[in-house]
Write a protein that binds this DNA or RNA. Structure first.
Lengths: 112, 112
DNA sequence: CGCATATGCAATCGTTTAGTTGCACATCCA
DNA sequence: TGGATGTGCAACTAAACGATTGCATATGCG
């Protein structure tokens, strides 16, 4: 096993982090985590326009963080926890690799 | 226990996600996860200027993802896995809340 | 000391992105 | 059928960001 902490695996994570790097999107996600809502319904609860919300939803959808459910003329969105858990697993694995390496180095230093 | 998936807790995460939402920074992190390096040493391995690297390191440092170790006139950086694991824990917790809620809704729907 | 090396600060540039407004299209309902 | 509601597309603006260059400062070494 090499210690080159998964550069390829991380590749696909960057767009997802970009999606999560915005407070408004987190506010939307939090709202959708508690209740299924349409873009218009969300816009009514936020200090931004419906189109702004729509763009955020597109970003979140592209990152696999929300799911769209059509119901007549409206489209409701729900937050997907599974995607978040996937990311969590990868982060935890990478973080552990780094710290394991540090621990090895320190163990060797100790021995001198 | 309320279902309002931790808006306050998430607040502090956004800057960290911003730090992780850049491929170059991940490349740097990956490199630092394997070996302790200075800004100049990193710049020699990347297709960007030393100042660009320095800014990235400042961003990573601000997010608690790297640690600086001064050694004479040079400053070496190392990746901190602990911070990544913290984020992983929070993401996992939030994701599970969302999915647990969905599961409850579905269980109720099943019963009708 | 004097030179090479490493970091720090500042101004600038091009691109990306969050947000807006305006308008067109689709769908439900009285 | 017509009006109200919901979504989609396009052009534009302002701010943030990644990256550059140029110069100043600090530290190690022969």
């Amino acid at each position: 096993m090499t210690a080159s902490a998964a550069p390829a695996l991380v590749e696909g994570l960057v767009p997802t982090f970009a999606a999560l790097a915005d407070q408004t999107r987190w506010d939307i996600l939090t709202r959708l985590g508690a209740r299924e809502l349409s873009a218009s319904a969300l816009a009514a609860e936020f200090p931004v326009s419906r189109q702004a919300i729509a763009k955020h939803l597109a970003a979140l959808s592209g990152a696999g963080l929300v799911e769209a459910v059509r119901s007549g003329r409206e489209i409701r969105y729900r937050a997907l926890g599974a995607r978040l858990s996937e990311i969590a697993n990868q982060l935890d694995r990478i973080g552990n690799e780094w710290d394991a390496r540090l621990a090895r180095i320190r163990a060797i230093a100790e021995r001198l």
